[in-house]
Design a protein around this nucleic acid. Structure first.
Lengths: 114, 114
DNA sequence: ATAATATATTGACATATCATGATATATCAA
DNA sequence: TTGATATATCATGATATGTCAATATATTAT
């Protein structure tokens, strides 16, 4: 099918003959888990657009509670999806894993499909 | 950073000014959840390589229990990731959502990085 | 030291997920 | 119908996740 072929060419050509390593699969499953929440996708989207933001800005922009944002950021930090930098009182967050952006773009494309 | 730029160009250029719609984010979070398990990624990888397989073949290839495979397939079916086709006694599964393959390729690339 | 701001963590509780073994359903063959 | 094969679902308990309010920690200003 044409669409599928295009899809493949558009992303990656590393589908080899070898099965994926179990530890790689486990690691990726963890990263996907950390990604798989509407709030967290939203946070990543904002971070990707702005580059880097302090927590209170994310709270303001998303209108979610401070504890909720902080919890999501902690989860993504543990998974290596985002990185935190304290700047005096504030802690600025940014996306740390380019694959997160790849998947975000995948979602954005879906939003503009057809 | 060069790598990040390449990453973006290689996948999608639809990062617009508008925030992602909440229902789109919720749907994608669900799909990612359905994807986020080492066994399920493994199953999808096999399906992508072979195109389509009956359940007992997936059981044989992955060496996982029949109930486990069946459960994972049901979960992915509900999320629209795979499609099932009964052929007499067997039920053949195939990947139904091209985005799943995009993410798979993303993982494969990680497996061959550097 | 005290207060104010920014962020992180905790506890309680509800809900979702996972693995496993047992059982149920569907299809075909004899 | 009976039996064999292929698949799906169920019941259970263990573990993880999500929410919310409260509290703790860190940093700066007074």
């Amino acid at each position: 099918m044409i669409y599928q072929y295009y899809e493949r060419m558009n992303t990656c050509t590393t589908k080899g003959a070898k099965a994926l390593r179990p530890d790689l699969l486990a690691g990726m499953a963890e990263a996907l888990q950390a990604l798989a929440h509407a709030d967290r996708l939203r946070i990543l989207d904002v971070l990707d657009r702005k580059g880097s933001l302090p927590v209170h800005e994310l709270v303001r922009v998303t209108a979610l509670g401070q504890a909720v944002i902080s919890g999501h950021l902690a989860r993504m930090r543990r998974a290596g999806l985002v990185r935190a930098d304290r700047k005096s009182r504030e802690v600025w967050y940014a996306i740390a894993n380019p694959h997160a952006v790849t998947i975000l773009d995948c979602i954005r494309r879906k939003g503009t499909e057809r």
